[in-house]
Nucleic acid binder design. Sequence first.
RNA 1: GCUCCCGUGGUGAAAUGGAUAUCACAACAGUCUUCGGAACUGUCGUUCCAGGUUCGAAUCCUGGCGGGAGCACCA
Length: 560
Amino acid sequence: MSRMDIRWRLREALENALRDVGLDMPLIHIPTLEHPAELAHGDYSSNVGLQYAKDAKASPSTLAAKLVAAFGAIEGISKIEIAGPGFINFYLAPETIAASIEQARSDEKWGSNIALKDIRIMVEYTDPNPFKEFHIGHLMSNAIGESISRLLEYSGADVKRANYQGDVGPHVAKAIWGIRKLNADPHDPSQLGRAYAIGAQAYENDPAAEADVDAINAKVYDRSDTAINELYAAGRAASLEHFEELYRTLGTRFDRYFFESETGPRGIALVQAHPEVFEKSDGAIVYKGEKAGLHTRVFVTSKGLPTYEAKELGLAELKLEAWPADESITVTAHEQSDYFAVVVAAMKEFMPDVAKHIHHVPHGMMRFASGKMSSRTGDVITGESLLNELQATAKERAAESRADDIGKLSEQIAVAAIKYQVLRQASHKDIIFDRERALSLEGDSGPYLQYAHARACAVAAKAQEQSVEPRASGGVEPSHLARLIQRFPEIVEYSASELEPHLVTTYLLEIASAFNSWYAQEQIVDGTPAAAHKVALTEAVRRTLKNGLWVLGIPAPEKM
RNA sequence: GCUCCCGUGGUGAAAUGGAUAUCACAACAGUCUUCGGAACUGUCGUUCCAGGUUCGAAUCCUGGCGGGAGCACCA
């Protein structure tokens, strides 16, 4: 029996009861069913008694009592109470909870749903730029984008992961200028970030350098200079290969790559084909966003080069040609929100069918307490250095580990630590980067969840050794832990509909914490008949943590 | 200046307009022969200010104050 059935039955019971007491009210637009924050308040709770007290000309608790009297028996519910100012609290029957536990431990896809079945969604995220650092902001975009992709997949959607990388543009020219200045090796990705910072600073402070960079920029676009082409090809390839290593570590596999070198020409063509939408201004071609309540942005520069804006138009077209998605999601930092609004406003005027599928998901920024990170000044923390630092800390900690491969384990722990820090909070909010907190492996952390999972694995293994046959019993009063497990599928569905991974993170922390407390006070494999139920519960925890961590894009090692 | 986002214990966060605002870190006091201490138990301590809407506001509205981001040839 699925959770959906129960929610549906409760809603129906509420609607029928309202009709019986003479209130024919639709429940569609009012949230009438929720999970009470406090488990003592039941598994589901309804506020209709409070909502409709006025219409019923009765006090909330009187109305609630009348409704409860009208319910009759509801399948799967064993107890109904009226509490507080007039809430109706529903308690699931022990057999219903036991059925969920059995499903959790035996169904590999426990927690998935079909709310988005067969909907094609392209999710673009990470978007680092070749020749620049892969910094912790990209790590943030990657963690959020990957988890959103998985949430959508777990809701039945057909998802393609896309990565859009800026392989042309002024930043590339600045880096090439810097490579020449430093006589750096373009094949070595670790030298490119510094080359870019040198170039960027010279561009601001030295007019001669500025002219040089502009000239290089034009040549990168038109490919006319052999020497520059060579530096460009080497640096581009080295950057991209370096990024691939990081994606492997982070657990992302992209299905499609798009580059600004492809989107640029397309974008210019689109702009030029629509003089009714774009206009000339000071030699540049702009879109006057004011007509849509926004601001003006440049799409093609006075030198005839495409800006990010024009490229975005080309990208939209290229994406659709690559794969006809129903929905196109772009995950970027919120500093790009206004930019996106203007581009989409322009698109609506001449490619409305494309524009209506585009959905921008802004996330917060990784910041230092002292301010914004900037690769222009070299004031950044690279994704690689943070991962390495975390891995070293994890390795020290793993001295007495049971894992076979400490190197791999410490990498998994490092990934968990950084992703958890990003995915534990609402994604649109900024994160102040705190090294000590980022390196912490205790308490509210990714490794804490991994540890609880490994612990559950160890107990399950012991039970198997002792030939304990797990089976959830409907004969015992459902525990706090059992009732939490039962909520998992709804949490995933809600998290996917909100595109908010942190709802899953918060829930998993609750599960792990409840499991650890229970574990501390209870011998699970205890040689008595009660072990069957307790082992079933442990296996259900293991599966819930494993699948939940998967949704977050965090690895779940069986031994730590 | 205009637009958007954010203000929750000492610190970092959670909370679908609901019930006694939930966690973690730090601090303090404990648990330890157990199936894994990256753990567990306890103590301490919180909704920026002023109005408003509502049966009910951290959440919605208005106005302040504070922080961040964006606003023409960067991405």
